[in-house]
Nucleic acid binder design. Structure first.
Lengths: 345, 345
DNA sequence: TTTTATTGTGTGTTCGAGCACATTTTTTCA
DNA sequence: TGAAAAAATGTGCTCGAACACACAATAAAA
């Protein structure tokens, strides 16, 4: 059926040299009208795909890509990203791609700027980063654009930047998933959205989830949605006061991976009838899921986000594939029985 | 850091010619002990990865791979597989891979054998197939082995064949996920496992799910697990009789994608208090999910199964990657709020 | 008309691995 | 010792795309 045409085949069919075909293919000019027509006629008839292997062998550039993450030692949420990055390294190291990792402190905008500075000095071909800090990330991304360095981001978006290669989840919808889960479990009563937040930095993501959560229950009558913000070091006393003042509480939705902290409290104080839904497969969360203190976790799949983000970049350079402007990953629902499958993968 | 070493670099470092290095790398013999040592010493020091692009350029074979599926027109469950196959075609057509699709009737072992016959005549490099019929599939796979054609299977395993490249899900665990979901919704009462089955062919998959489902509730006291087999054309009357004779029924687990048929009945007869969990994102099922008749669907991800199965084969030939013996995909839990994300992807 | 630009066209080399073949070195045995 | 056989080693070509360069043909300027 579909034969494999080479540039030489086309040259013969058109009765010209392969150099001329090459000039036509790349719009390099220096081709007479007659030759152009003859070549384009042939190209219209057959479907020619340049052999990517051959093309790449010639280009033979060792692309360098930097990955910039919040330090997993300071927030274990980011640990799976390392696996994702390593998968890409394994898959593509034989193609001569150079992937370098850098971390910044999730609590320090300064370290973020510093890391980006270091990357920019190295002038790599591309950067994959988590734009945790809005203002700083916007600034940094404009710098990259000026330097002609491709940037992809994951985990969260930045509104100010228009053209972006983003990989993440629809957080509004994610909040709605949490809402639906609590509705399925509880069927009625008061529900609470709990934010556990030391700093302002995560506020926007959490607000998106909260908005989604609320929107779901606006369409439904027999529920009341409460809100609660918890901060250390008064965590326990704040939560205690909140629970005492809302005896009809049947379910809690925690907007971050710190849900295990609420679970710890509920377990310690024997609140067995409160449904609990939160985020991410941290070890602590998984334990609570297995013992039943947490009913569902929503998986944000940081590993997959990092993996895909990096893979798109690599394939962009290696095989000239397009990077999708935005990729929203599925929102995975995890309970005690399917959790093992997700931990492996 | 990690420089890109070529065969020529190694030759220079070892003070031999690239031909000798090549013979060492491929254990082709005809190398003196001194030369062998010098080369292997260099190889130990550096980490050499042959440039896959260059290797492949030389090989330059147009591989042919067949995909054999049950006809999606006869069972819509298989429709997403087509997308999965097309994704691979798009990703790799520039590498000169020839992918051909064939269908068989899910109701006819004869058409399955016939299709395999056709494939074997074409002597492709590999085949990806759904071994729906155990006996016939075992026979066919032995034939492929004799012919030296690589076979990967997805959707379901075959016990008789030892070496296999399988992609699918852990069906036992899948049954446990369904059980856990019903437990979360209902908290007590009678639960039913319903099989909807015209033929014997699916029996083993369904039994696996049932086993998992039962195992979950053996660990828990306040539930009773009932079983029910439904067959057309007496579907409605059989189900009606079953429901009437079990008034305490609080939840139903349907082991196949035909769960919409049960949902239709429940909706028509106003059984609003029975939780329902089933399989797969057929349009009918998704509609029931959105209206609330079905509470959860378990996603078997046929698209991903076909995609990965085919991709592994392609990459095996193109880049000499290993095909995993068995890949168990995550068991996705779907509710009305996260379903859209899965339909897109 | 000759010289210099301009444009069109073909040739040849490169990338790295792989392998056939040529060449050199070593071994064997008359 | 010398010729033949065997073993070891090196050389050179291939794959397809890309591009530099050489050369030819034509057009423009001197």
């Amino acid at each position: 059926m579909s034969k494999k045409y080479t540039i030489r085949d086309i040259a013969e069919l058109a009765g010209v040299s392969k150099g001329t075909v090459d000039r036509v293919l790349h719009n390099r000019g220096r081709v007479s009208e007659t030759a152009l027509k003859r070549v384009t006629n042939i190209l219209d008839e057959i479907d020619y795909h340049p052999n990517l292997i051959a093309r790449n062998l010639k280009n033979n550039k060792a692309y360098t890509i930097y990955v910039l993450l919040p330090n997993p030692e300071q927030d274990p949420y980011w640990e799976p990203c390392l696996e994702g990055v390593n998968s890409v390294v394994d898959e593509f190291n034989a193609f001569g791609v150079n992937i370098k990792q850098l971390f910044f402190s999730p609590k320090s905008t300064k370290s973020f700027l510093q890391a980006n500075n270091e990357i920019q000095k190295a002038t790599p071909d591309a950067v994959l980063l988590v734009p945790l800090f809005f203002k700083e990330a916007s600034v940094v991304m404009k710098q990259y654009e000026r330097l002609g360095i491709v940037v992809s981001i994951f985990n969260n978006t930045i509104e100010t930047v228009t053209t972006k290669n983003f990989i993440g989840q629809n957080l509004y919808q994610s909040g709605r998933v949490g809402a639906k889960l609590l509705q399925t479990i509880t069927s009625k009563g008061d529900l609470a959205v709990i934010h556990i937040d030391e700093k302002y930095k995560n506020a926007v993501f959490m607000q998106e989830k909260e908005r989604g959560f609320e929107s779901f229950f606006k369409e439904i009558s027999n529920y009341k949605v409460l809100k609660c913000k918890l901060k250390h070091p008064d965590f326990d006393s704040l939560l205690n006061r909140f629970l005492k003042s809302h005896p009809n509480l049947t379910g809690i939705f925690v907007t971050t991976s710190k849900v295990y902290q609420v679970a710890d409290f509920l377990k310690k104080n024997n609140y067995t009838n409160i449904a609990l839904v939160g985020y991410d497969l941290l070890d602590e969360n998984v334990n609570h899921l297995k013992t039943g203190t947490i009913d569902f976790l929503i998986h944000q799949n940081p590993k997959q986000q990092a993996y895909l983000g990096l893979k798109f970049l690599v394939e962009h350079f290696l095989f000239e594939k397009n990077i999708p402007n935005q990729l929203l990953l599925p929102i995975d629902i995890i309970n005690s029985e399917n959790v093992t499958q997700f931990l492996r993968s």
